[in-house]
């Protein structure tokens, strides 16, 4: 489904991603963990071209982006089409009702009629347990509710892959749990997911594969339980023991 090879990202003289290779199968759930500043967010943002990669090849479905060539707007749109993204800070549109938040892009991008879009939005909001909030503004919702709305908004475009950047980090543990439950259901439903997270429990028990990043590289990866319980490299051991003992 996704194929990344030799992904490099420089910010000025600072190399933040230093040759990432990654392939993700359809239906796979991947947790990306690693110390702060290791480049997890940047990696995810390069994956949907919010940051322009400095070098490397990215493929999603049958669209390939070569960082050494200029990317046209159409290529970028086509490349992003199957990708849904959820941000740490939700980024809901505060001036619209919850329903409009979920419906807008369906109307503009998928050319659904407003009725059709609203109907789908209500179904999705029900699915994340927020049907009752449809006509409110996001500011009237808790953080956990806002993040679930953001998930519904991304799902409304029928993505094939969902990217999550620390979706629960801005939330109290209790509210984070609501969001994790929704994500777990998504995973169980067969969605392909890449999740940057500090939730070790999610990484270990929900994801199929864990990637550990440090200093812009993937230093270790493999089946979740194996990597989490029995890391091979010294750097990964140090990171895991630090977060486990917190």
């Amino acid at each position: 489904m996704i194929e990344v090879s030799g992904l490099v990202k420089d910010f000025g003289a600072h190399r933040v991603l230093d040759g990432i290779d990654l392939s993700v199968q359809r239906g796979e759930v991947i947790a990306m963990i690693g110390p702060s500043g290791s480049g997890k967010s940047t990696c995810l943002r390069c994956l949907n071209l919010l940051e322009a990669p400095s070098a490397g090849l990215l493929r999603v479905g049958d669209v390939t982006i070569d960082a050494s060539r200029p990317v046209t707007r159409r290529q970028r749109l086509g490349f992003r089409r199957p990708l849904g993204m959820v941000f740490q800070s939700f980024n809901l549109f505060p001036h619209m009702t919850v329903l409009r938040n979920v419906s807008l892009a369906q109307e503009r991008v998928l050319k659904r009629s407003r009725r059709e879009a609203d109907e789908i939005s209500r179904q999705l909001l029900d699915r994340v347990g927020l049907g009752a909030k449809a006509d409110q503004h996001p500011s009237r919702c808790s953080g956990g509710q806002q993040q679930r709305i953001a998930i519904a908004r991304a799902l409304a475009l029928d993505p094939e892959v969902m990217l999550f950047d620390e979706p629960t980090s801005a939330l109290d543990p209790e509210l984070g749990l609501e969001v994790l439950n929704v994500m777990q259901e998504l995973a169980a439903g067969g969605m392909t997911m890449i999740v940057v997270t500090h939730e070790m429990h999610f990484a270990e028990s929900v994801s199929d594969r864990v990637l550990i990043m440090a200093d812009g590289r993937i230093i270790e990866q493999g089946p979740s339980a194996e990597v989490m319980r029995n890391p091979q490299t010294e750097r990964a051991q140090r990171f895991l023991s630090a977060v486990m003992n917190r």
């Binding site: 949907n48 919010l50 707007r73 749109l77 992003r80 089409r81 990708l83 849904g84 993204m85 941000f87 800070s89 980024n91 809901l92 549109f93 505060p94 001036h95 807008l104 892009a105 503009r108 991008v109 908004r153 991304a154 475009l157």
Partner: peptide, 27 residues
């Protein structure tokens, strides 16, 4: 208007004119 707002529009597949019209100007 917070930068995350236009990023949210971008990842939803809105084009720059739509982001301006529906996300940036109204806020």
């Amino acid at each position: 208007v917070h930068h995350g707002q236009s990023e949210a529009g971008e990842v939803l597949g809105l084009d720059p004119a739509e982001i301006l019209r529906f996300v940036i100007l109204p806020q």
